[in-house]
């Protein structure tokens, strides 16, 4: 296959929502795609006005998109993504090499979903004096043994259908109800759930999505299949990337903020306890894995938990609070 033709104006990895005043704090949010970058505007707006806010958009890295769409042609690794993000961060943040007069004050990293893996990986690759004073993980699953999957040992399709319903609702600005189709009820072992069962689930989800206005009347089943395939391609890409990645323990405090309707409800730290050498806080905010980034009430709650927006004396240093 010939290489993809390149656009004259490539998408930018670094997207600044709000400039940082001299010496002020900057929040760098690592965005793993799936939702548009503008989804971070609510959180940026909920932080104090003297806090700068920058998104590092992995979705703007062509190799990251290619790794989902054409995995056979990709040799992308988590370490390579971290290289790209660190280059963007260093170019912006302080030091003699920074271009554009970027900020030089204190920094907090935030990473949503797979972005949390990258925010942590960046932190540990940076020199100690370059590191943020904390990493805030938003419903981010740790790249540790319990949560890494080989290509053929993926997540139960019934669970992926539930996540997809959440995703579709967030993308379309409405709740899309998800009902486990009778053909894929929980009594059926996951090993026997195949493509036919997924199609039954998608057909039911299409009816529900049309009924609630998330998709227009007359949308063919091929369209929801296309949406589901694109969604699972991104999920599988991230599974492939984390399967070969070896994270190191955290040298800065971690804060895990889960959504009330998290991808994985049962684990309060989503595996990060294994990597937290220092402090690990665990909290939850309204919404699901996707809407936590969009809902104003969730944004306000997250802003209140980001150490950058609180006076230092209120920052708790407890371990594993849930």
């Amino acid at each position: 296959m010939a290489p993809r033709p390149s656009r004259a104006a490539a998408a930018q990895v670094l997207v600044r929502h709000r400039a940082t005043p001299p010496g002020g704090r900057t929040v760098y949010a690592v965005h793993p795609g799936a939702l548009p970058v503008v989804a971070w505007a609510n959180l940026a707006g909920a932080l104090p006005q003297d806090t700068g806010f920058v998104v590092l958009d992995v979705g703007a890295v062509p190799a990251y998109l290619e790794a989902a769409l054409d995995p056979g042609a990709s040799d992308l690794t988590v370490d390579r993504l971290i290289d790209i993000l660190i280059a963007a961060y260093r170019a912006d943040h302080g030091g003699a090499d920074a271009v554009g007069g970027g900020p030089a004050g204190p920094v907090t990293f935030v990473g949503w979903s797979f972005g949390g893996v990258l925010a942590h990986g960046m932190t540990e690759r940076l020199k100690p004096e370059e590191r943020p004073d904390g990493v805030v993980l938003l419903d981010s699953v740790a790249p540790t043994g319990a949560y890494t999957y080989a290509e053929d040992d993926g997540v139960d399709p019934r669970i992926v259908l539930r996540w997809f319903a959440m995703f579709l609702g967030a993308k379309r600005g409405t709740d899309v109800p998800f009902r486990t189709p009778s053909a894929t009820s929980s009594e059926v072992p996951s090993s026997t759930v195949g493509a036919d069962h997924v199609l039954v689930g998608l057909e039911q989800l299409l009816r529900d999505a049309v009924a609630c206005g998330a998709l227009p009347e007359g949308t063919p089943v091929q369209s929801i299949r296309k949406l589901f395939d694109a969604y699972t391609a991104g999920l599988l890409r991230n599974n492939r990337l984390t399967f070969t990645y070896r994270p190191v323990p955290a040298t800065v405090p971690l804060t895990q903020i889960k959504a009330h309707h998290s991808l994985i409800p049962s684990d309060p730290t989503l595996g990060w306890a294994e990597l937290a050498d220092r402090t690990l806080e665990a909290h939850s905010v309204p919404g699901d894995h996707y809407t936590m980034l969009i809902r104003p009430d969730a944004s306000r709650a997250i802003a209140g938990l980001i150490p950058a927006s609180r006076p230092p004396q209120l920052v708790k240093t407890r371990r594993d609070t849930q």
Partner: peptide, 21 residues
């Protein structure tokens, strides 16, 4: 992607996952 699905419905065959890429 909804349009891509409508197109498949019209054409009667599936577009490869890399077609739009």
């Amino acid at each position: 992607l909804v349009i891509a699905g409508e197109m498949e419905n019209w054409l009667g065959f599936e577009l490869g996952t890399t077609a739009l890429w």
